[in-house]
């Protein structure tokens, strides 16, 4: 079983961290293999940031993502630059608060930024809401592994907030 996940959004949303958390969950807690890569450079700061994770039951040879089967898109510019190419049978989770375009592939709309703001009073954890939704919708890593990897990665004192964000995302991402 192999999944290739592409994350994109704008600088400051925690796009890279989200990808690292998923990779960490897969490697450390699901005992799988993962490779995380990202786009570097000045254009990745102000504009659209992008990171990709491959998750595999077997060792990963070629480390670059060719065609992602899962997209997690959190900004309009990120969609245009890194998401618009998506086609079936890929699936895309979008932060519907910030992205107004829709892809040609199956799309799961998650109002992550709005819900983070309204429910948790902190839109900074919108990326963690998206991670919860990602796991609920795709099971790329287990819920428990995601929880542990989030706790490993977030600043001290913000653990409860981030776990609440993850729970919120798990609810929002549940598929019928």
């Amino acid at each position: 079983m192999r999944n290739e996940v592409r994350f994109s959004g704008f600088g400051g949303q925690g796009i890279i961290l989200s990808a690292v958390i998923v990779g960490r969950a897969a490697v450390i807690y699901d005992n799988k293999y993962a490779v995380q890569t990202q786009v570097y450079g000045p254009e990745a700061r102000g504009g659209a940031s992008m990171s990709q994770v491959i998750i595999d039951d077997d060792p990963i040879l070629y480390p670059k993502v060719a065609t992602p089967d899962i997209y997690l898109i959190m900004s309009q510019e990120g969609f245009e630059k890194y998401g618009a190419v998506a086609e079936d049978p890929s699936v895309m989770l979008i932060d519907s608060t910030l992205v107004h375009s829709r892809p040609k592939c199956r799309c799961i709309e998650i109002p992550a930024t709005r819900e983070a703001k309204l429910t948790l009073k902190k839109d900074i954890v919108a990326n963690i809401v998206m991670l919860g939704a990602l796991v609920a919708a795709t099971h790329v890593v287990s819920e428990e592994s995601l929880r542990k990897a989030i706790l490993d990665s977030v600043p001290k004192g913000t653990e409860d907030l981030n776990l609440k964000a993850m729970q919120l995302g798990l609810q929002l991402g549940k598929q019928p």
Partner: peptide
């Protein structure tokens, strides 16, 4: 840069 910047197990 490929190996320097990628994360893996």
């Amino acid at each position: 840069e490929t190996i320097g910047h990628m994360r893996e197990k």
